[in-house]
């Protein structure tokens, strides 16, 4: 479970995240929808403990990100951006192992989990190849495995499909479903309604750092009296700008 409590982030001038509170239930997939610059990345970076909130806090599987960021981190896996974020000169297995070790997972457990993940993501053929030599799709899968090697309860995905082709997007969507099946809590951001609509149990819409709506798709449609997704999105973030 993720609980955001009056989360605020102020940069030099800009108020990037303005008093956001909501809850993502355990095992739920919540889509964080917002235009460019709405504050999605900043919110997720705070939840991942990379940025310290200006005020407010959040509980990640019960652990306070401000009071105990290190412990909170062990509950969280992240996948930020469309790029895979692997070390090209390390093999896939080495990449995975590095993040496992830094999350204090014993080596034998890392090995065992790597094997399992290799089966799940069909990576056995290239586990010992250098990441830089692989195709985009293979790298993508390797970065999924890297993100969950420490078996986190919560996954934070920041625009995981941005700049990807159709088949890569399909892989990401499969990955998110895999996570759901494992009972993990997923918060992922996007700036396109159609993507969120397909995968999410609920949607939170933010605009200029503020939470403007949250609910299931049906609830949102009903509230705003429209069936058209794009129109709904425009209604939610438009008008107020």
């Amino acid at each position: 479970m993720i609980e955001l409590k009056q989360l605020v982030k102020k940069f030099d001038k800009a108020l990037a995240v303005d008093n956001i509170s909501f809850t993502v239930n355990k095992g739920e997939i919540l889509g964080l929808l917002g235009e460019n610059g709405a504050g999605k990345t900043t919110t997720l970076r705070m939840l991942a403990t990379m940025l310290t909130p200006t005020s407010g806090t959040a509980l990640m599987a019960g652990v306070d990100i401000v009071k105990d960021p290190i412990k909170a981190r062990s509950r969280v896996g992240i996948l930020f951006g469309g790029e895979s974020g692997l070390y090209d000169r390390l093999t896939v297995a080495e990449n995975i192992r590095y993040f496992g070790e830094l999350n204090d997972i014993p080596l034998d457990v890392i090995k065992e989990r790597t094997k399992k993940l290799a089966d799940i993501f069909d990576m056995n053929d290239y586990l010992d190849k250098r990441a830089g030599k692989l195709s985009k799709g293979m790298r993508q899968k390797a970065s999924f495995a890297r993100a969950i090697i420490h078996d986190p309860d919560i996954l934070l995905l920041d625009e995981p499909t941005s700049g990807m082709d159709v088949s890569a997007i399909r892989d990401v969507q499969d990955f998110i479903m895999t996570l759901k099946n494992q009972g993990k809590t997923v918060l992922f951001s996007s700036h396109t309604m159609s993507e969120v609509e397909k995968l999410c149990d609920r949607i939170a819409v933010i605009h200029k750092g503020k939470l403007v709506a949250i609910g299931t798709l049906d609830q949102l449609k009903q509230e705003h009296g429209t069936d058209n997704m794009d129109e709904l999105f425009v209604k939610l973030v438009g008008g107020k700008s």
Partner: peptide
């Protein structure tokens, strides 16, 4: 630039 810093900073290693 490679976007590896963010996952790195989210590990338990401070």
């Amino acid at each position: 630039e490679r976007m590896t810093l963010e996952p790195l900073l989210t590990t338990r290693a401070g």
